[in-house]
Simulated assay, not measured.
Amino acid sequence: MIFLDAAATTPVRREALEAMWPYLSGEFGNPSSHHSLGEAAAVALAGARSGVAKVLGCRASEVTFTSGGTEADNLAVKGIALARQLADPSLNRVVISAIEHPAVEESARYLERVHGFAVDVLPVDREGLVSVDGLRAVMRPETALVSIMYANNEIGTVQPIASLASVAREHGVPFHTDAVQAAGWLPLDVKALGVDALSISGHKLGAPKGSGVLFTKGRLGVEPLVHGGGQERARRSGTENVAGAVALSTALGLSHAEQPEQAARVSDLRDQFIDQVLATVPDALLTGHRSQRLPSVASFCFPGTSGESVLLELERLGVVCSSGSACAAGSDAPSPVLVALGIAPETAQTAVRFSFTSTVTDAELNEAAAAVETAVGRVRNLASPQAG
């Protein structure tokens, strides 16, 4: 099997498993307990927090562990916007892009539905880019938060986050970025990016599912979503997942160290793969920006096919990939991300996304490109009138 669905999840790294194992076995204490077992867990949790902070270029106190990227996004969007509104009731607007992950979009819609916020949705161009001038045009005195993702999970387009965050900063508005897909592939220094909040998910970079992080800058207020014992500096109550935090910190540190070399290597392989697919399936439509994209994502529409049928044929040929976001599983509606790019709904339903781990090889992608040609050809043949 050739696994090309790393944007959905990645295999857990052995180093992460080994690092977390003690806290699933002998060192099982609650980090809030004041005895030797609890203190050992607290030391491990503090070490994990410091490890994450080192990669992000922030203080350990600015790191909140969560159950994953979805919770981190919810805590950022709802928590920051509501805290700002509590301090100043006139702040009742949030800005998002048209291609945000549902964790951000639905959080914004919750604020709209339940708390009376207005949601300003920034359009994107045909390559999925948000305009810096477009953001500047929608900023209002009432804007409580801007949330724009670093890199899109379906098309791979990378946004000019530092420039966008600068616009928000000019207006004194906090800026959050969903960096779930960017982690492990792009620089994450929060000072260089200029962001006030940043979300990460562990299972996208070699840690187990159920671990995540939210960075929030300094004294930025965050209204908690989960109330209780006041863990995580009262931002997120509940006994911490010590093993998950240790695994995430380990995987993040390793991927950060490998990032420059692996990003360059996989970018080259990605470009070769894209060229091969476009050469052998000439009417294939590459989605997202041609170069300003994640090293790990190549996504296409194959007009005249069914994306799901192409996926089934690819799996028969030993290639595992997806039709888009794993978080939209079970939906047969065209991707809102692709529709936002101006792609017709019937074409958007032919989408297939290939996303790579850092260990993907040239041989695997050559074989996958050949399988794409075969799979698309079979689907079209079966759909032709002659086939009936």
Rank of each mutant, 00 (worst) to 15 (best):
M1A: 11
E18I: 04
A19W: 04
M20C: 03
M20L: 07
W21A: 14
Y23F: 15
L24P: 00
L24V: 11
E27W: 07
S32P: 00
H35R: 11
H35N: 15
A41L: 03
G51K: 00
L56D: 03
G68I: 07
T70Q: 14
T70S: 13
D88W: 11
I96G: 03
A103Q: 01
E105T: 13
V114G: 01
V114S: 09
H115R: 05
H115D: 04
L122M: 07
P123K: 09
G134A: 07
L135Q: 05
R136F: 00
L145P: 05
V146N: 02
M149R: 10
N153I: 08
P160C: 09
I161S: 06
A165I: 00
A168K: 10
H171T: 03
V173H: 09
D178A: 04
G184A: 14
G184N: 12
D189W: 12
D189P: 09
S199H: 03
A207E: 02
K217C: 06
G218W: 01
G218Q: 05
R235H: 05
G238C: 10
G238R: 05
T239N: 13
A243H: 06
A245L: 05
L248Q: 07
S255I: 07
Q262G: 10
L278D: 05
S291T: 13
A298H: 04
A298Q: 06
T305E: 07
G307M: 04
S309M: 13
L311D: 07
V320G: 01
C321K: 12
C321W: 12
G324M: 13
A326L: 14
A326K: 15
V337S: 09
A348P: 11
A351G: 09
T357W: 02
T357L: 08
T357C: 03
S358Y: 07
N366M: 09
E367N: 12
A370K: 14
G377Y: 02
R380E: 01
N381K: 08
P385A: 15
Q386M: 14
